[in-house]
Amino acid sequence: MKTTNLFKAVAFVAMIIVSIMNSEVKAQDRFITNEEVQNDLIVAKTIFRQSGTYLYNHMRYEFTYDDENRLTNKTASKWDSVKEKWMPYFRMSYQYADNEITLSYARWNEKHQSYDKDVRKSVYEMNAENMPVAYKSNRIYHTVNLLTMAE
């Protein structure tokens, strides 16, 4: 009897977890992406939220590259439906040096009209294949999980 109740409880919890995971996947399906490409590089990406048969602006990303086709800036904007325009959100800048890449992140500061809010900076050491292998912070090295770096 106790085994049957335990089995029912475990099955019930499993069904709830699957239901929650399924709803999260469905929520992601309500977004449509449009990429703008120039010279085989993505220069902009607009994310639309789908509601029924209508699409609504949600997020917009703009990308810039250097002469070697390396990403130098990623700028994000969020759609303001009241003002009916894209509003700056954050910017990520990438600087390349000898076997290092410096990543800078800053949020838009409405008061200053610049990207100077919540500024963060990370430095990554690159290997011979030009892949990040270590995170450098105040001369402390941390192993990088390459799977979490993909967008």
Rank of each mutant, 00 (worst) to 15 (best):
L6K: 14
Q50L: 02
T4P: 14
Q50K: 15
Q28Y: 00
Y96F: 12
F12V: 06
T148Y: 02
M59F: 14
M1Y: 05
A106I: 04
V119C: 05
Y141T: 01
E129I: 00
N127Y: 10
G52D: 11
D118A: 05
K117Y: 10
F12W: 09
S137C: 07
M149E: 09
E24I: 15
K136R: 04
D98S: 14
S104T: 05
H142G: 07
N57M: 05
N138P: 12
T33F: 13
M87G: 07
A11T: 12
N130R: 05
K121G: 01
F12H: 07
D80R: 00
T3Q: 09
Y54P: 02
I16H: 09
K45D: 01
N109G: 08
S81N: 14
P88N: 02
K2I: 08
V123P: 15
E36F: 11
V144D: 03
R139C: 03
L6G: 12
L103Q: 08
K121P: 00
Y61E: 15
Y56D: 07
E84Q: 15
Q28H: 01
T72L: 03
T102K: 12
E84H: 10
S137R: 06
T46F: 11
Y61Q: 12
D66M: 12
R49H: 14
L41A: 10
L41R: 13
K83V: 03
M59R: 14
N73F: 00
L103Y: 09
K8D: 06
N5S: 05
K8C: 08
N22P: 00
V119M: 06
K111G: 06
T72P: 07
T143M: 06
Q50D: 06
Q113I: 01
M15H: 01
A9K: 11
K74A: 07
R120V: 01
A76L: 05
N69H: 13
F12G: 06
T75I: 08
R91W: 03
V82P: 00
Q50C: 02
A97Y: 09
E35R: 15
T53K: 15
W108V: 11
T53V: 10
I20S: 10
A11F: 04
R120H: 05
V133F: 02
S104F: 00
